[in-house]
Design a protein around this nucleic acid. Structure first.
Lengths: 234, 234
DNA sequence: TTAAAAAACTTGTCTAGTTTAGTTTCTTAG
DNA sequence: CTAAGAAACTAAACTAGACAAGTTTTTTAA
């Protein structure tokens, strides 16, 4: 395990379990250097990660203040935020596979000009506390993943890609719009036609920059909520 | 000027002006070290920034691939994305001040449990290409900023805070929901009642962690669009 | 007692190296 | 000509220092 990630996770756990309280100062670089027996740069990498993700606020000459992290839990600027949301908030969640189909072309409006590819289409419905919340259309690149078993779709596609296939997912670009509900939305989400839909269209890539999937997630807007943390650079 | 920021801006300019083309490799660390006559760590800081913001994809052993940066231009996970959007896309934009009022309490739903404060409320309307797009309710902390002149509200509050007052804006937390239009939305945005509103409620802080403002931005959802870049950490 | 100066902290930036792990290119043996 | 191996490259992680620029605490002088 990389040292700086070890330190990062260690500190993060202390923040999330409130061992380090909001408003308090994190141990200084020097103390962390002594505690973990690493160089200062390594400590600073861990600190930088916490800073970038909005867990702390560093002030020169003073220290690193711990921020309220309860509020920065459910951004969609995280890949697969949905699974995280469900596990961290102890909701009862269910995945239903609506359909699976091989050798499908990716729709033009998902590609944003990129060249097309043959994919396996997985359509799923996510139900939280017995309320249908999201319909996901996943177009999985067949050049990368041969054939997704139904069990993987029921559980988590990302988990299957990373743990079972050993693929490294690296980043995603997400386009967010609000659109009227279409026929399938009405049907699968069991809403009436004046409920708008938050549509998140994304392209996901591996660490070698190959595209693994295109996804269209359709959330019922009345139940939709997201929190973003934005830091300013000079 | 900090060296790593200098290098960062230099490289970014080359990417944005397409001098470095999509799919090409950035000059290697060693070459950049020679070009800018700095240490490798300094080069790597600049590279890291580009990486974090989604401009490049680094692959160990290979190099740093330049990604398509046209698509990662308009996220709301940037503070004051609106001004950026307008300037980079050469739209004709106008700011109208609807009202200004001193000694106002911040509404409960904007505070998220934080203690209240006295603020100056500035209500504005943003018009792009003659279409009213957003209503902004800015509650500006009177303990930080004495009295905002109307001219600053007409131009840009952030510009006024940073350039005229020398304040350093550091980060913001943004809550995004979709809600039905209220009476003021219908009136000021000139829409009818079935157009939903994307509501972005945010808290903005300075680099010393003081709150400078709470903002509620109400966008007409049919014209709303955002792009988020999400990188995965282990 | 008070106020100024000094010391001891803090984070931020930077240097100059090493080792590790991965990719690409060239060379060499068959 | 081909395939295997070596060499030359690439980024990633880490070390051990330096000095700068702030804040806080302690000491000193009036």
């Amino acid at each position: 395990m990389k040292k700086y990630l070890q330190i990062y996770h260690d500190l993060l756990t202390n923040i999330q379990t409130k061992k380090f309280k909001e408003g308090d100062l994190l141990p200084s670089d020097t103390k962390l250097v002594m505690k973990y027996d690493v160089s200062r740069e390594t400590v600073r990498r861990a600190i930088k990660l916490l800073f970038d993700e909005g867990y702390i606020q560093t002030i020169r000459g003073k220290g690193s203040i711990i921020l309220n992290s309860d509020r920065i839990m459910f951004p969609f600027s995280r890949i697969e935020s949905y699974k995280e949301l469900v596990t961290t908030s102890h909701l009862h969640s269910e995945n239903k596979v609506i359909s699976m189909q091989e050798h499908v072309d990716v729709p033009q409006n998902l590609l944003f000009g990129a060249p097309s590819m043959t994919t396996q289409l997985v359509v799923r419905k996510r139900i939280v506390n017995d309320i249908p919340m999201v319909i996901d259309y996943d177009y999985i690149n067949e050049a990368v993943v041969a054939n997704v078993p139904k069990q993987a779709a029921l559980n988590s596609l990302f988990y299957y890609f990373e743990h079972d296939l050993g693929l490294k997912i690296n980043y995603a670009i997400k386009h967010i719009t609000v659109e009227p509900a279409d026929y399938d939305d009405l049907h699968y989400l069991e809403i009436d036609r004046h409920v708008p839909i938050v549509v998140v269209r994304s392209e996901t890539r591996l660490s070698d920059n190959r595209i693994i999937s295109y996804t269209e997630s359709r959330h019922r807007a009345d139940k939709f909520s997201s929190v973003e943390f934005a830091r300013r650079h000079e």
